[in-house]
């Protein structure tokens, strides 16, 4: 079991003919992902890496039954690409693009909320989603993953790879790894993904990787505490030694109650009964040692 993507997910890649789009389309195909279509306006009717290219997402959905979109469209056009996918009835949209203006994302969120059906947006500015051994919808190196039962949710890209690699080297596989993205406004937050993982019978434990700024970690901690549940959750927060004032929000952080420091996030996690990991080099080891013998056996098999 897994969340969001599985072996049969049919993926369309928006921006497939660009350099990043084609490079990572190949990576997804090599991993075994069912990349059924690509979209680049003006290049409809052509083919790349054996994948048919369409002018619009709607055509790709109609012609190839795509249900998941992976977006590599450049930042100035990315917001429009997300809305295009959502309006074409794509159910899961994963936006890799970095550097989308914040107010563009305000518009995207508003439009998505108006649509009749449920649509999940992951990102932007994220590494994507992978269910190891089944489906990779993103830019993460596939080989570092291993199928298993630990779910990972992270705001970072490469720090996620680090955590995954540590788990894999200890023989702990992952159910699904979700990079929610590093931008101020995200399609989906920690707590929504955490909720799904706690519901997922294929996930035995969850690792949250947060960083300084904003209050998404605090919200996730509160959600976990209020929900009351049985799966162990671990958390690492990057940025304890980052120079203060360089990346912190101003008025935004005030409105949200002065949260945002590494310490406030770690405290919120601790209070919620989440195991806080101090060293980024010990994420794998801590999870490994904390799992009870039965869970460990479950997770390893």
């Amino acid at each position: 079991m897994s969340i969001l993507v599985h072996a049969d997910s049919r993926v369309v890649i928006q921006g497939i003919t660009g350099s990043a789009g084609s490079f990572h389309a190949q990576g997804c195909l090599e991993y075994g992902t069912k990349v059924v279509a690509g979209v680049t306006p003006g290049k409809g009717g052509s083919e790349i890496l054996g994948v048919p290219v369409f002018d619009s997402v709607r055509q790709a959905v109609k012609g190839r039954h795509a249900e998941v979109s992976l977006i590599f469209v450049p930042a100035p056009h990315a917001a429009d690409a997300i809305v295009e996918a959502a309006e074409a009835d794509v159910k899961l949209i994963v936006c890799i693009t970095e550097g989308i203006p914040v107010l563009d994302m305000v518009g995207v969120k508003r439009r998505l909320a108006q649509l009749p059906g449920p649509v999940v947006l992951i990102g932007p500015n994220c590494p994507g989603v992978i269910t190891p051994g089944a489906c990779k919808v993103g830019i993460m190196p596939g080989y570092i993953h291993r199928a298993g039962k630990v779910g990972i949710i992270s705001r970072s890209g490469t720090l996620t790879y680090e955590a995954v690699w540590q788990l894999t080297r200890l023989g702990l596989g992952q159910s699904t790894v979700v990079g929610i993205g590093g931008d101020p406004i995200l399609g989906t937050g920690f707590q929504e993904i955490l909720g799904r993982m706690l519901e997922d019978p294929g996930t035995e434990a969850v690792v949250l990787i947060g960083e300084i700024g904003g209050s998404a970690e605090e919200a996730a901690a509160q959600f976990y505490r209020e929900r009351g549940n049985s799966k162990p959750v671990f958390a690492f927060v990057a940025g304890r030694t980052a120079p203060p004032g360089k990346r912190m929000g101003h008025a935004g952080a005030i409105v949200e109650g002065g949260t945002g420091t590494a310490e406030s996030k770690r405290e919120a996690f601790r209070k919620a009964g989440i195991c806080v990991i101090d060293s980024p080099a010990e994420i794998g080891q801590t999870v490994f040692e904390s799992l009870s013998p039965t869970r460990k056996q479950d997770a390893l098999t």
Partner: peptide
């Protein structure tokens, strides 16, 4: 990556 960069600073510390 910003997250890994921050984690690297934490690790050096």
């Amino acid at each position: 990556g910003a997250g890994l960069a921050m984690a690297t600073l934490d690790m050096i510390h």
